[in-house]
Write a protein that binds this DNA or RNA. Structure first.
Lengths: 138, 138
DNA sequence: TAGAATTAGTTTGAAACTGTACTAGAAGAT
DNA sequence: ATCTTCTAGTACAGTTTCAAACTAATTCTA
């Protein structure tokens, strides 16, 4: 019997929102909105607003807002990039790094609570499958 | 080496938004916004607004809005429940069922394009893992 | 080196979302 | 019966999100 794609998709969807929901209180305690957290978590890998927008698949204008909030909260700061004066290089402050790390652990902990129900082999399996499905086609 | 929960979570997150993004054009063609689609797809299993809000983990007020739109588009209608006169029983119209089915196939097709990269065994595997992780604790 | 085309990021204004307060009906207690 | 108390759904109003227009810096072309 074939596995139903729509059902799998729904399952996955549900799983993510359950996990996120379970964590949002903890994130709030760190002073982070959900969306802000995504930006905070990605900024090390994508240190410019345009990169963040592309990586997170959200509009540039939204990045502007989230970054403004994160700067106001002291989690990051902007610096003008020497290479290209139009660019704002985003730099995590010490508090920003601490908040990101704590938020990531909270999230991982919740996800791990779910992962704990499956075997380590299954976890490796899951990772392999997701990676495969995410590879950009050709 | 242990599989990193936070990373898995991010992978999964990314996968879902890529798939949803790839489908939104097709949904729009059916006259469905993304959020509306979720309501349309769930209404058969959760035929009252309060149930929908709980199942989809969105605020009651938002359900009111989506249902209003779906009713306006002729995809469903409200009926007063005889058992409890406060309740609105939601009923899919023929067009609603057709749109839901077409939208679900579109989504499944896109997800299947991803699933096609992995073996049937892996798909079964994935389903089993997700189900396990979604089971409500104790 | 001057203009056209591109790109980074922000601002603006309008649409989408949702917390709160509300109305109507139901259920329980006295 | 009446009085809480609770639940279903909606309306309103404040906030969040984002498409489009904009400004500024860069790159390309000649």
């Amino acid at each position: 019997m074939a596995v139903d794609g729509a059902q799998l998709w729904t399952l996955n969807q549900r799983l993510l929102s359950v996990v996120m929901d379970a964590c949002s209180a903890e994130l709030a305690q760190l002073g982070l909105e959900t969306k802000e957290f995504f930006v905070l978590a990605e900024v090390a890998a994508s240190p410019y607003p345009a990169e963040l927008a592309a990586a997170l698949m959200i509009p540039k204008a939204s990045v502007t807002v989230y970054v403004r909030n994160l700067v106001a909260k002291g989690f990051m700061r902007r610096e003008i990039d020497d290479e290209d004066l139009r660019r704002h290089r985003l730099i995590l402050t010490a508090e920003g790094q601490a908040a990101r790390d704590r938020a990531l652990s909270a999230l991982a902990a919740e996800f791990d609570r779910r992962l704990a129900r499956i075997t380590p082999q299954d976890r490796t399996e899951l990772q392999r499958i997701l990676l495969e499905m995410l590879k950009t086609p050709e």
